[in-house]
Design a protein around this nucleic acid. Structure first.
Lengths: 158, 158
DNA sequence: GCAATGTCTATCATTTTGGTAGGAATTGCA
DNA sequence: TGCAATTCCTACCAAAATGATAGACATTGC
């Protein structure tokens, strides 16, 4: 039931970019993100490119360039991002709603495993398809402020 | 969020053995199981051995041998089986209850991703730790009977 | 004694994972 | 105008995981 590093980094990056956006910084470079999340820059670049191709990000090249959100945060569902980077949410394909595939078992209609896994997939989807990037960013921001923790991407104005 | 074939086969096998048990057949051979579920015999054997080592099965060697449950079905939690074969339920380690591990992010206490993944892990655990093998077998059996489908492991008495 | 079965060890091809390296193209700014 | 910062693109790579297969040995029932 694992999320790959690739998926993890993709979500971290999106959340960070969302956070930065909410704090008034609409453009974030890959090196800033990599530093913030301690992710190898080059690896992250590839992931950001994928997020761009998926339509979640736009970018600006050249010096002072970077990435920025291509959609309003409340329209980016975490579940969709995960599906895009990791594949179906369901633990086994025959339990997937968006990527169903017949399995090898002799009688799918009476398969106890499938039944179980459909429940699991629904539980996961219920969370990840309900939460948007906006929700995630909001919660994070609230926590940060409540604890008076240093906000990321707000460097002492210079 | 995938379940490997190994995990899938392990669960299928357990469910089948439970089903057989409920139908009066307390001993099932690997070849019967492999045939029923269309799993490569040798691969299945290795998995059954692992389930045995994990304390879920006992076996009887030799002709007429096979595997049988080592515990009452209602004490076998699906979640534990999955953990044993697949590892932690949580998508990322820092969200795991049974196998927590610090992650590389700079501030775990305010990590939006972790928060999300804790929810996901709880949703999964709520299902898989609540369901026992007995539950799964019971539901399957009920469905089979309701639809008057042919019951497995009850070969026309000879 | 032989056939059926579990047990054990070794091996293996393929895919996935988690990167790294290098450079070309673009842009802002001094 | 040129340099530094940045995205974009291609290629490559080592290690691990995945999903098996092969073969021999041990045990048991008939």
């Amino acid at each position: 039931m694992k999320l790959s590093k690739r998926g993890e980094y993709a979500l971290r990056a999106l959340i960070d970019i969302g956070l930065a956006h909410a704090l008034g910084k609409t453009l974030v470079s890959s090196s800033e993100l990599a530093k913030q999340e301690r992710i190898p820059v080059k690896f992250l670049e590839a992931i950001l490119l994928e997020l761009k191709r998926a339509g979640y990000l736009h970018s600006k090249r050249g010096a002072q360039g970077g990435y920025f959100l291509a959609q309003p945060m409340h329209r980016i569902k975490i579940g969709d991002v995960v599906r895009r980077i990791e594949g179906p949410l369901a633990p086994i394909r025959c339990a997937s709603v968006t990527a169903y595939e017949k399995c090898s078992c002799p009688d799918e209609a009476h398969c106890g495993l499938r039944l179980l896994m459909v429940d699991v997939r629904n539980a996961i989807a219920n969370i990840l398809d309900r939460y948007t990037l906006a929700d995630t960013v909001e919660v994070t921001l609230r926590k940060l402020r409540r604890d008076k923790a240093p906000l990321p991407f707000v460097e002492a104005a210079r």
